[in-house]
Amino acid sequence: MSRIEMGNDDQRSAIRRTVWRSVAALVGMFAFAFALVPLYDVFCEVTGINGKVETSAQALVNEEIDDSRYVTVQFITRNGSGLPWRMDVETRQIRVHPGQSAEVNFTFNNQSDGVSWGRAVPSVSPSSATRHLRKVSCFCFDEQRLEAGERLELPLVFQLARDLPEEVNSVTLVYTLYPVETRKAQLQAGAKVLEGDEV
């Protein structure tokens, strides 16, 4: 009907080329949107945005303890909805020197008559401290399973790096307890049984 459909092969192939390039860009951008999810996590961990912390254990770094200053570390536990657990921390706050490692115990108590899975989601404030917090061991790395009425004590071992910014003299660690969906929990339980681990 129009010029395009009537011929002019050069133009038609040029148009086709443009279209394919656009489509490639589109697909790329769609993939990029999903790639942003892990990228964002990496970015957050590197920069400490949003108090997101490493979700896996870090090694303790042997560095000289900075005796010249104290940092107050506060621990706050919160309950998200839907998990019949009680979460306590043995102390609400401690004072540590940068470079020093510390251990604090948290207790979890399943108050229902059924087994359930939970996860403590960590958040750190101020965000400028996040990069300088090394967690050697934390209950928040894994999902926890508690039998009916079971009580579990788990430690948090951490170290504040010596290069913690000068102006930071108090760091708050918040743990919010959320239920892990049953379906997901069963899958993982199954996997663990297969691996022969103690469940």
Partner: peptide
């Protein structure tokens, strides 16, 4: 526009397929 499509797809998955892109409870 593909980024918008990506975001709403993630929403859809969070709502219907139990993922947790935007849900703190699931990480």
């Amino acid at each position: 526009m593909p980024v918008l499509a990506g975001v709403i797809t993630m929403m859809l998955m969070d709502i219907n397929f139990g993922t947790s892109f935007f849900d703190a409870a699931g990480g």
